[in-house]
Design a protein around this nucleic acid. Sequence first.
DNA 1: TACAATGCCTTGCATTGCAATATATTATAG
DNA 2: CTATAATATATTGCAATGCAAGGCATTGTA
Lengths: 117, 117
Amino acid sequence: MAYIQQLLKGLIDPIILSLINQLPMYGYQIKKESEQRTAGYLKMKGGTIYPSLTRLERNGLVASRWKRTGKRRGRRYYQITEKGRQALSSSLAEWHDLCTAINKLTGEAGSCADTSQ
Amino acid sequence: MAYIQQLLKGLIDPIILSLINQLPMYGYQIKKESEQRTAGYLKMKGGTIYPSLTRLERNGLVASRWKRTGKRRGRRYYQITEKGRQALSSSLAEWHDLCTAINKLTGEAGSCADTSQ
DNA sequence: TACAATGCCTTGCATTGCAATATATTATAG
DNA sequence: CTATAATATATTGCAATGCAAGGCATTGTA
């Protein structure tokens, strides 16, 4: 198992939540967006994204609906809920705290992400 | 399971490696040091630290030796190896890359940790 | 004499990213 | 027209690891 996959544990849900928060998206779009925005660094697989979306919806953090554009195959669009926004905010706060702790332990560098989300 | 535990996946080994790199330590000392340096934020349990140390030693990233001070019970001290230093360096680089990616995806903030280790 | 703190260690659970795979549709190249 | 790639969703089961829970032994202290 690649090391990056371990580091990503617990981060996929907030990442997806954050993307959806900026704009409602469907699964494949999330995959492409995250790849582009990180210059190919983050390549999430279908076996990662869809279970995550299912999880988020089961917990009430996102809501989905089918949408057909012309004769195209339907896509399932996901949008964040109010509960999701709160969860995202607290997730990012936790992430920030963790970064602070890591910096303290490994030798100080700079802050990581702000909590003003 | 607490959320922080998910975020820590893959980070415990580098954290411990980093602490040992600064100063050879024994398990319980690692626990106390990490608690103090993060003002009580990071409380690693024995069930986390000892398996990690075993793992690190099995992979040749640390080496251990018993030491008795006076009539005190023996302590197992761990010190980093050359291989361990390289692994630490690459782990921190990965961590830095990840932080950069997260920042890009969640809305930009600042860098996380530098790689000059 | 208790009790807390120190110090090491093991077992098994909970969680989750993803490889592998399946299915269906659409666009494009040969 | 046909084959291939890209798009799009979804499931199954594996691999990895933090830690809760517990056990054990020693030392300091109230």
